[in-house]
Each structure stands twice: as structure tokens, then as C-alpha cells.
Amino acid sequence: MLKKTLAALALGSALLGAGQAMAANYLIDKEGQHAFVNFKISHLGYSWLYGTFRDFDGHFSFDAAQPETSKIQVKLKTASVDSNHAERDKHLRSPDFLNVAKHPTATFESTQVKPNGNGSFDILGNLSLNGVTKPVTIAARFIGEGKDPWGGYRAGFEGSTRLKLKDFDIQKDLGPASQEVELILSVEGVRQ
């Protein structure tokens, strides 16, 4: 009887400990506008053109003690591109660029998270954009986590990556200074 009780206590402690070591799941806070998918690209080598995608959602899992177990998934509506210029946005939605009629969504799904120390990570994953799926690496940094004023718990990150337009079958030639676009990400999630 004592052996069975000790075994049950040991098993219960092991399960409880395993549950505490598991990553928490977070929903990206799109509703509160605490997440952004922005971009910048050189305009003729003279200045920067900035824009954002207004409509996306996703989720991630994160455990600060074991960041390598983290995962992230994001789905973005390409027609939500906004560069603060209606005619340019119409062109960005056309087959010359995002071809939103044929490819209305872009997705990112992580395959590996590599901690680099000091709260920085390389997030490796597959980006599907304009009908092409390619591996990308996002250089990310943990900003912080904790309770919010509404009784929830949040965690936030920022990151960036550079994409060659031709890698994603965007053939419009914008000149030698504009062959790559930088994605700049800021993500805050609410623990579920």
C-alpha cells in the first residue's frame, strides 16, 4: 500500500512538473492592435518606402526556460497591404507584385527556434507568399512578458527578415536598389 501511494505521488509530481515545463499558448493580439507586420523597401536608392499589412492573425507557443520549443504560425491577407497611397496599393495588389486575386493569403510556420542568448533568437520557418514557399530566418528578440491590467498574461517579440522579391516570383524590376524588401515584425500575444 505504501509503495503504491509513493508511486502515485511520484507520478503525480512528474506530471505536474511536466505540465509546468510546457510552453504556454498565445493568440496574437490583432484586436487590440498590438501586433504589426510592416515592410520597407528602397525607392530608387533615394529614400525608403514603408508599408504594413492590416489584416493577419496567428498564434505562438513560448516557454522562456525552453525557448527552443517555441512555435509560431501566422496567416496574412495580402489584399490588406497599405503603403499610404491608394494607387500604389492597387499596383501592389496586382499580378506585378502580390497577385492577391490568385494568392489572397500568405503564411508563415516555424520549423525551429534557435536561441542566441540575451533574449535573441533565430526563428526558422517556411514563408508562403505569391504561390511560392521558401525557408526564411527571422532574427527575433524577446521584449518581455507579464500580467496585463485586464487580468490576462502577455508576451511580446520583435523581429525582421529580408526577402528577395524574385525568390517569391515577384518579377517586377524596381531597379538595382530595390531587389529586396525588409519585413519588420512586432508581435504581442495573449496567453490562452
Rank of each mutant, 00 (worst) to 15 (best):
G146T: 11
T105H: 14
R141T: 14
F142H: 03
R54D: 15
F121A: 03
A21W: 13
G156D: 07
L183E: 06
L16H: 01
P135V: 08
H85S: 10
P95W: 02
K77L: 15
P149S: 07
K166T: 15
K90N: 13
E87D: 14
S110I: 03
N25C: 00
Q66M: 06
L124T: 03
A79Y: 02
K75I: 14
G58L: 04
F97V: 12
S61W: 01
D173E: 15
V100S: 14
V37T: 05
E188V: 02
K30I: 08
L127R: 03
M22P: 00
Q112I: 01
F108A: 10
S120R: 08
A18E: 05
G189T: 03
S186K: 14
D89Y: 04
H34G: 07
Q73L: 10
I123G: 09
H85K: 12
L11N: 02
K102Y: 01
A79I: 07
D29P: 04
A24F: 02
P135C: 08
L44Y: 08
L127F: 04
S83C: 12
D122Q: 14
N130W: 06
A21T: 07
S128T: 15
A21I: 05
S42R: 12
A14G: 11
I138V: 06
A139C: 00
V181D: 08
I184E: 09
R88N: 04
L98Y: 09
